[in-house]
Protein backbone atom coordinates (compact mmCIF):
# COMPACT_ATOMS: atom_id res chain seq x y z
CA UNK A 1 0.00 0.00 0.00
CA UNK A 2 2.77 2.35 0.92
CA UNK A 3 4.54 1.72 -2.35
CA UNK A 4 1.42 2.42 -4.36
CA UNK A 5 0.94 5.85 -2.80
CA UNK A 6 4.44 6.95 -3.69
CA UNK A 7 3.44 9.82 -5.98
CA UNK A 8 0.88 11.11 -3.52
CA UNK A 9 3.38 11.04 -0.70
CA UNK A 10 5.91 12.98 -2.75
CA UNK A 11 3.34 15.69 -3.38
CA UNK A 12 2.36 15.66 0.28
CA UNK A 13 5.98 16.16 1.32
CA UNK A 14 6.50 19.00 -1.11
CA UNK A 15 3.35 20.79 0.06
CA UNK A 16 4.25 20.33 3.70
CA UNK A 17 7.73 21.60 3.07
CA UNK A 18 6.48 24.76 1.38
CA UNK A 19 3.37 25.55 3.38
CA UNK A 20 4.03 24.72 7.00
CA UNK A 21 0.59 25.65 8.29
CA UNK A 22 -1.28 23.41 5.82
CA UNK A 23 -2.95 20.22 7.07
CA UNK A 24 -2.30 17.62 4.38
CA UNK A 25 -3.76 14.12 4.20
CA UNK A 26 -4.23 11.38 1.62
CA UNK A 27 -7.82 10.10 1.78
CA UNK A 28 -7.31 7.55 -1.01
CA UNK A 29 -5.32 6.77 -4.08
CA UNK A 30 -4.71 9.71 -6.45
CA UNK A 31 -6.19 12.17 -4.01
CA UNK A 32 -4.48 14.68 -1.74
CA UNK A 33 -6.53 16.81 0.60
CA UNK A 34 -5.18 20.12 1.89
CA UNK A 35 -6.73 22.39 4.49
CA UNK A 36 -5.36 25.90 4.25
CA UNK A 37 -5.40 29.28 5.85
CA UNK A 38 -7.58 31.73 3.88
CA UNK A 39 -4.81 34.02 2.74
CA UNK A 40 -2.68 31.12 1.45
CA UNK A 41 -5.03 29.90 -1.30
CA UNK A 42 -3.56 32.26 -3.89
CA UNK A 43 0.12 31.31 -3.44
CA UNK A 44 -0.83 27.69 -2.90
CA UNK A 45 -2.65 27.30 -6.22
CA UNK A 46 0.08 29.29 -7.96
CA UNK A 47 2.63 26.86 -6.53
CA UNK A 48 0.57 23.85 -7.59
CA UNK A 49 0.03 25.16 -11.10
CA UNK A 50 3.49 26.48 -11.90
CA UNK A 51 5.79 24.19 -9.92
CA UNK A 52 3.98 20.88 -9.45
CA UNK A 53 2.19 20.89 -12.83
CA UNK A 54 -1.43 20.88 -11.69
CA UNK A 55 -2.65 22.60 -14.82
CA UNK A 56 -6.30 21.57 -14.79
CA UNK A 57 -8.94 23.20 -12.59
CA UNK A 58 -11.73 20.64 -12.29
CA UNK A 59 -14.18 22.45 -10.11
CA UNK A 60 -14.90 24.78 -7.25
CA UNK A 61 -17.40 23.49 -4.77
CA UNK A 62 -18.95 25.20 -1.79
CA UNK A 63 -20.18 23.86 1.55
CA UNK A 64 -22.29 25.88 3.96
CA UNK A 65 -21.30 25.02 7.57
CA UNK A 66 -24.24 26.70 9.25
CA UNK A 67 -23.47 25.41 12.75
CA UNK A 68 -19.87 26.63 12.64
CA UNK A 69 -20.86 29.88 10.91
CA UNK A 70 -18.43 29.28 8.11
CA UNK A 71 -18.51 28.78 4.35
CA UNK A 72 -16.04 26.34 2.88
CA UNK A 73 -14.64 26.68 -0.64
CA UNK A 74 -13.23 23.52 -2.20
CA UNK A 75 -10.85 23.92 -5.13
CA UNK A 76 -10.15 20.74 -7.07
CA UNK A 77 -7.13 20.80 -9.39
CA UNK A 78 -5.63 17.94 -11.36
CA UNK A 79 -2.28 16.94 -12.80
CA UNK A 80 -2.36 15.36 -16.26
CA UNK A 81 0.98 13.59 -15.80
CA UNK A 82 0.28 11.49 -12.71
CA UNK A 83 -3.54 11.95 -12.58
CA UNK A 84 -3.47 13.09 -8.95
CA UNK A 85 -6.16 15.45 -7.77
CA UNK A 86 -5.46 17.99 -5.06
CA UNK A 87 -8.41 19.20 -3.04
CA UNK A 88 -7.69 22.54 -1.41
CA UNK A 89 -10.14 23.67 1.25
CA UNK A 90 -10.47 27.07 2.84
CA UNK A 91 -13.03 28.38 5.29
CA UNK A 92 -14.53 31.86 5.08
CA UNK A 93 -16.55 33.83 7.57
CA UNK A 94 -20.22 33.19 6.86
CA UNK A 95 -21.36 36.73 7.64
CA UNK A 96 -18.98 38.40 5.21
CA UNK A 97 -17.40 35.82 2.88
CA UNK A 98 -14.71 37.46 0.75
CA UNK A 99 -11.79 36.02 -1.22
CA UNK A 100 -9.68 37.37 -4.10
CA UNK A 101 -10.57 36.02 -7.50
CA UNK A 102 -8.40 33.45 -9.31
CA UNK A 103 -9.18 34.69 -12.80
CA UNK A 104 -5.54 35.32 -13.65
CA UNK A 105 -4.73 31.62 -13.18
CA UNK A 106 -7.67 30.07 -14.97
CA UNK A 107 -9.90 32.44 -17.01
CA UNK A 108 -12.69 29.84 -17.05
CA UNK A 109 -12.98 30.15 -13.28
CA UNK A 110 -15.15 33.23 -13.89
CA UNK A 111 -18.26 31.12 -14.44
CA UNK A 112 -17.79 29.11 -11.22
CA UNK A 113 -17.19 32.24 -9.22
CA UNK A 114 -20.26 33.95 -10.61
CA UNK A 115 -22.40 30.95 -9.73
CA UNK A 116 -20.99 30.70 -6.21
CA UNK A 117 -21.52 34.42 -5.77
CA UNK A 118 -25.13 34.05 -6.78
CA UNK A 119 -25.96 30.85 -4.92
CA UNK A 120 -23.97 31.40 -1.69
CA UNK A 121 -23.25 35.12 -1.62
CA UNK A 122 -19.48 34.75 -1.62
CA UNK A 123 -17.83 37.95 -2.82
CA UNK A 124 -14.88 37.41 -5.14
CA UNK A 125 -12.73 40.53 -4.95
CA UNK A 126 -11.41 41.83 -8.25
CA UNK A 127 -13.67 39.59 -10.31
CA UNK A 128 -15.24 42.48 -12.20
CA UNK A 129 -18.26 40.62 -13.60
CA UNK A 130 -20.28 39.48 -10.60
CA UNK A 131 -23.62 40.33 -12.24
CA UNK A 132 -26.83 38.31 -12.50
CA UNK A 133 -26.10 34.84 -13.79
CA UNK A 134 -28.93 32.32 -13.49
CA UNK A 135 -31.22 34.05 -11.05
CA UNK A 136 -32.43 37.43 -12.22
CA UNK A 137 -33.23 40.19 -9.75
CA UNK A 138 -32.82 37.93 -6.74
CA UNK A 139 -33.63 39.63 -3.46
CA UNK A 140 -32.97 38.24 0.00
CA UNK A 141 -30.58 35.54 1.13
CA UNK A 142 -28.91 33.44 -1.55
CA UNK A 143 -30.96 30.30 -2.20
CA UNK A 144 -28.30 27.63 -1.59
CA UNK A 145 -27.58 28.74 1.98
CA UNK A 146 -28.94 26.33 4.50
CA UNK A 147 -31.02 28.86 6.42
CA UNK A 148 -33.00 29.56 3.26
CA UNK A 149 -36.36 27.73 3.47
CA UNK A 150 -36.98 26.54 -0.09
CA UNK A 151 -40.46 25.05 0.41
CA UNK A 152 -41.72 28.09 2.27
CA UNK A 153 -40.31 30.45 -0.34
CA UNK A 154 -41.78 28.42 -3.20
CA UNK A 155 -45.20 28.35 -1.57
CA UNK A 156 -45.18 32.08 -0.91
CA UNK A 157 -43.85 33.18 -4.29
CA UNK A 158 -45.48 30.87 -6.81
CA UNK A 159 -49.02 29.69 -7.43
CA UNK A 160 -49.66 26.07 -6.61
CA UNK A 161 -52.08 23.71 -8.27
CA UNK A 162 -54.76 22.72 -5.74
CA UNK A 163 -54.07 19.21 -4.48
CA UNK A 164 -50.37 19.60 -4.98
CA UNK A 165 -49.43 22.13 -2.34
CA UNK A 166 -49.46 19.67 0.59
CA UNK A 167 -47.13 17.27 -1.25
CA UNK A 168 -49.39 14.28 -0.86
CA UNK A 169 -47.76 10.94 -0.64
CA UNK A 170 -48.52 9.09 -3.85
CA UNK A 171 -48.58 5.67 -2.17
CA UNK A 172 -51.13 6.74 0.44
CA UNK A 173 -53.40 8.13 -2.24
CA UNK A 174 -53.20 4.99 -4.35
CA UNK A 175 -53.88 2.63 -1.45
CA UNK A 176 -56.80 4.78 -0.32
CA UNK A 177 -58.32 4.57 -3.76
CA UNK A 178 -57.80 0.85 -4.21
CA UNK A 179 -58.69 -0.02 -0.63
CA UNK A 180 -55.43 -1.80 0.16
CA UNK A 181 -53.53 -1.43 3.39
CA UNK A 182 -49.92 -0.37 3.66
CA UNK A 183 -47.82 -2.97 5.49
CA UNK A 184 -46.39 -1.82 8.83
CA UNK A 185 -42.87 -2.17 7.47
CA UNK A 186 -43.44 0.21 4.60
CA UNK A 187 -45.22 2.87 6.63
CA UNK A 188 -41.98 4.39 7.80
CA UNK A 189 -40.98 5.14 4.25
CA UNK A 190 -44.36 6.26 2.98
CA UNK A 191 -44.89 9.24 5.27
CA UNK A 192 -43.01 12.33 4.32
CA UNK A 193 -42.23 14.85 6.97
CA UNK A 194 -41.84 18.21 5.39
CA UNK A 195 -42.45 20.67 8.11
Amino acid sequence: MEVKLQVENEILDKIKHTFHSAEVSIPRKQRVEVKLRNDLIHPFLAYLKDTLGFKHLSHISTVDWLEENEIELVYIVMNYDNLVEVIAKIRLDREKPEIPTLREFWPQIETYEREIHEMYGVNFLGHGNLTDFILEDWEGIPPMRRDFDTVKYAKETYFNRPGREDAQDVRTTITKKSGEEIPELAKVYSVRHLE
Binding site: I134, L135, P143, F148, T150, V151, Y153, A154, T157, Y158, F159, N160, R161, R164, A167
Partner: peptide
Protein backbone atom coordinates in the same frame (compact mmCIF):
# COMPACT_ATOMS: atom_id res chain seq x y z
CA UNK B 1 -45.96 23.32 -16.83
CA UNK B 2 -49.07 21.80 -15.21
CA UNK B 3 -48.16 21.72 -11.53
CA UNK B 4 -44.45 22.12 -11.19
CA UNK B 5 -43.70 18.43 -11.67
CA UNK B 6 -40.52 17.36 -9.96
CA UNK B 7 -39.69 21.02 -9.36
CA UNK B 8 -42.75 21.56 -7.16
CA UNK B 9 -40.62 22.98 -4.31
CA UNK B 10 -37.96 24.74 -6.35
CA UNK B 11 -37.13 28.33 -5.48
CA UNK B 12 -36.75 29.41 -9.09
CA UNK B 13 -39.29 27.65 -11.31
CA UNK B 14 -42.92 28.58 -11.81
CA UNK B 15 -45.49 25.93 -10.95
CA UNK B 16 -48.55 27.03 -12.92
CA UNK B 17 -47.95 28.17 -16.48
CA UNK B 18 -51.53 29.31 -17.09
CA UNK B 19 -51.29 31.99 -14.44
Amino acid sequence: TINGGMYWDSYNTIKLLDM
